[in-house]
Every structure is written in structure tokens, then in C-alpha cells.
Write a protein that binds this DNA or RNA. Structure first.
Lengths: 156, 156
DNA sequence: CTTGAAAGGTTCGGTCC
DNA sequence: GGACCGAACCTTTCAAG
């Protein structure tokens, strides 16, 4: 398993392929092939190699939460009583479906999480009835994202 | 254009399809069809309907930044001199490839961004030579993500 | 929702540096 | 060995019923 290795070499053709697919994972490979000027089979072979190198983890459908009525996104900084409480806290956070990301951070807080809720009232319930109830959580700071103005992946 | 409408109805079959594809956008539709017990074309029709409703925005290849040598992720809270500087600041941030997300937030800062860098030195350069140079940026607070412990989409 | 035909994706054997 | 191509086979897509 040659993986998570930072010595992966990709050439210009690989970059072109990745740029197409990072925007739309279901873009026809033959269309890319015609644009670049090689056969579909060659692209497929390169993709298999890139996958084996660990460079891409897979592909995901992106759903628009607003259409499902989820319009409130927020970041919450969490203070823990003791640093050793982290693994249990993460385990508890995993069980809360509104929690989309969880980062173990330097700085003020022990943990920074991103949550997605239907509205402010839903966010308040998640805060009071779910997050504040977790053992070890002493205090939280909430930052509501009024507008996500940039959302992209690493630039290749 | 019936879009961004929060009155989209999805049934159990739609949910199953979405759950499969949110994990892996290139999963064979016929495989899902066999699991659910309807034809591949039927799934395709439901997907077209869901796409028309605005529920999904597309699909993306997910690349692993670590393999490319990008190992330092951080959140940076940005204080702006004046709130009106926001549009210009976002425009400037868009030109910095290391900036992956940008949120207009309530609370302490005007802006919260997520950056991805090769290492701490690279992060320092991005902070000092790019972000601090933006007109209107008065002060920043940086939180390095030592470990992203949860990363997922809205639960369906 | 299903069928069926056209377009696309995948794999394999072979060719050419 | 490494990269690419072409053809056979399977999957996806789309229109018609």
C-alpha cells in the first residue's frame, strides 16, 4: 500500500484531467479525451494510476441543503474541561447529524465544528440540547455564516 | 427555473439513491438499481427530476491534499476596518489559491476563511504576504486544524 | 416504470517508442 | 518498461410507449 505519500508526480495531462473531474465527476471521459487529444482508454489508465497513488479518494454527489430547508450554517468553537476529553467528545459529536465537520485545533478552543441547521431555532436546540450536554463541554462560541462566498478544492 | 425551493419532496427510493451517490458519485447505477429492485433507467429519471429541483448541484472528484504535500489546514478569522470593505476583500481572497472557503460571519470577525498550505512556513507566508496585505484587513486570528476528525455532508 | 437503441465507460491485447 | 490505441463488452443515457 503506497499511500499518503507526498512524492506523487503528475504531469500536465493529469492536471487537465483532474481539473475537469474536480468540477464534475461525471463529465464524460471521452469528451475530456477529445479536448486533450488522447484516447478514452489512456485517460482511464491514468485515472487508475492516480487512484492507486492515493491522490484521489473518490467522488461525491453534492447536494444543496437549502432545497431541503437547511439554511443556517454555523461554526462553533468548543472549550473542553480537559484535553483528554477529546476522543469522547468527538464520538458524541459524530452522533449529532447536524455536525458536518470537526477539527482539533490550536488556539482558543479545543474543537471547532461546522453545523448545518434548518434555521436559528434549530441551531439553538442543537446547541442547548445536544452540544452543551456532552460531557466535558464547558463553553461554546458560535459564528453563523451569513453567506458562504468561496467554496472550492485545492488548486491544481 | 424552479430552484432553491424548500418544498422538494423526496421519497424513500430517492433517499437510497442519494445516499449511495453522496458516498461515491461514480458508483454504477445498475448496481444501485439491482439493490433497490428497479431498472437503471428509472433511477436515471429520478436523478434528472432531483437535479431539476435543484437538490443536487453536481458531483466532484475528491483529491487528497496530503499526497500533493499539503498538510497544514487552518481557519483564519479576519477583522476588517469597515464592514463595507467586504466585497473587495472577498475579491482579493478569491485570487489566493490557498483560500478554500470564505464565510461572512456574525460574531468577532467579519470573515472566516479556511486555508490549505503545504506546511507552517507556507501558512506564515500566506498570512503575512497575502492576507495581511489586503486593503481593509486590520487583524487576523489563526486556528490550525491539527486533525479533521469528521467530514461529511448533510444527513438524508 | 419499462423497453430498446445510441452514446459512453471499462478492459484487454497489441503496438510503438 | 511505460504510454497509448482499437475493439469487444458492459453501463449509462434518452426517447417512446
Amino acid at each position: 500500500m503506497k499511500n499518503s505519500n507526498s512524492s506523487v508526480k503528475i504531469d500536465g495531462i493529469d492536471k487537465k484531467i483532474l481539473r475537469y473531474l474536480m468540477e464534475d465527476a461525471r463529465r464524460p471521459i471521452l469528451e475530456i479525451a477529445r479536448n486533450i487529444g488522447i484516447s478514452g482508454a489512456a485517460i482511464h489508465q491514468r485515472l487508475r494510476k492516480l487512484e492507486a497513488s492515493g491522490l484521489f479518494v473518490g467522488s461525491k454527489f453534492i447536494v444543496n441543503p437549502k432545497v431541503l430547508g437547511y439554511t443556517t450554517m454555523a461554526y462553533i468553537g468548543i472549550f473542553l474541561d480537559k484535553a483528554m476529553a477529546n476522543p469522547q467528545a468527538v464520538k458524541a459529536l459524530e452522533k449529532i447529524p447536524e455536525v458536518l465537520e470537526c477539527h482539533y485545533t490550536t488556539g482558543n478552543w479545543s474543537i471547532l465544528i461546522k453545523v448545518l441547521c434548518r434555521d436559528n431555532e434549530h441551531l439553538m436546540q442543537v446547541l442547548n440540547k445536544k452540544i452543551q450536554q456532552i460531557d466535558g463541554v464547558s463553553r461554546t462560541e458560535t459564528f453563523i455564516s451569513l453567506n458562504q462566498q468561496i467554496d472550492r478544492q485545492i488548486h491544481i
